[in-house]
Simulated scan of single mutants.
Amino acid sequence: MSHIAETPAPPYYAVVFTSHRTDGDHGYAEMADKMVELAAQQPGFLGIESARDDVGITVSYWADLESIKLWKANAEHLKAQKLGHEKWYSTFKTRICKVERDYGM
């Protein structure tokens, strides 16, 4: 992804996922693309931004906590989470934040 998400006026929520990958792809890139497409179809999804160097950072934006909860429980997303634990990540952290103010140019 090479764009900045266009989010509505706050408040809304951000899910910040930071990770260290294991060596090799093992189907990661294909699944990551699939998850972005699937997330975009979910109620309450507002956008996503991602960057990867040594540490990967993906921030997805959501209208409310219920939308985040439903995305976490999505059957396809659950499969991806399981593969992430087993194959793709040596470590990761998920943080859920309420965005109360934003600004930019």
Results as ranks from 00 to 15, higher is better:
48 I>N: 06
54 D>Q: 13
45 F>E: 00
34 K>E: 14
70 L>A: 03
59 V>Y: 04
53 D>Y: 13
20 H>R: 13
77 H>V: 03
77 H>K: 03
39 A>H: 05
72 K>E: 11
103 Y>G: 15
29 A>I: 00
2 S>H: 13
51 A>Y: 14
56 G>W: 02
61 Y>F: 08
99 V>W: 09
29 A>L: 00
40 A>N: 07
10 P>L: 05
19 S>L: 10
18 T>H: 07
14 A>L: 04
9 A>S: 15
12 Y>D: 00
66 E>S: 12
94 T>H: 07
10 P>H: 07
89 Y>C: 12
100 E>N: 10
83 L>D: 04
83 L>T: 06
27 G>D: 11
29 A>Y: 01
13 Y>E: 01
105 M>T: 15
55 V>H: 04
93 K>M: 13
59 V>L: 06
64 D>S: 02
37 E>A: 15
18 T>A: 13
25 D>S: 07
41 Q>K: 12
85 H>S: 09
40 A>S: 14
62 W>R: 00
21 R>M: 02
59 V>C: 00
6 E>L: 14
8 P>R: 09
7 T>D: 02
74 N>E: 14
105 M>K: 15
90 S>D: 07
1 M>Q: 13
42 Q>R: 12
7 T>F: 01
102 D>Q: 15
49 E>V: 06
47 G>F: 00
49 E>M: 08
30 E>W: 01
33 D>M: 05
48 I>T: 08
89 Y>M: 11
19 S>K: 14
99 V>Y: 09
30 E>R: 04
73 A>Y: 06
83 L>H: 01
9 A>C: 10
80 A>V: 05
12 Y>S: 00
101 R>M: 08
83 L>S: 05
79 K>N: 11
68 I>N: 03
80 A>P: 05
44 G>T: 06
4 I>E: 10
96 I>Q: 09
37 E>Q: 15
79 K>F: 08
10 P>T: 05
29 A>K: 01
38 L>Q: 04
92 F>L: 12
81 Q>I: 08
35 M>W: 08
104 G>P: 08
78 L>D: 10
37 E>R: 14
40 A>G: 09
13 Y>V: 01
42 Q>F: 08
57 I>V: 11
17 F>M: 12
90 S>E: 11
42 Q>K: 12
63 A>G: 03
83 L>E: 04
68 I>H: 01
19 S>R: 04
63 A>S: 09
11 P>E: 05
83 L>F: 02
22 T>F: 02
25 D>N: 11
15 V>P: 02
66 E>T: 11
85 H>L: 15
43 P>I: 01
53 D>N: 12
10 P>N: 03
68 I>A: 04
64 D>R: 01
31 M>N: 13
30 E>G: 03
73 A>H: 02
102 D>I: 14
97 C>E: 12
36 V>F: 07
47 G>P: 00
82 K>M: 09
19 S>I: 12
50 S>T: 13
3 H>P: 00
72 K>G: 08
10 P>R: 05
43 P>D: 14
83 L>V: 03
5 A>D: 12
3 H>R: 08
68 I>F: 07
104 G>N: 12
22 T>G: 04
101 R>E: 10
81 Q>F: 03
63 A>H: 05
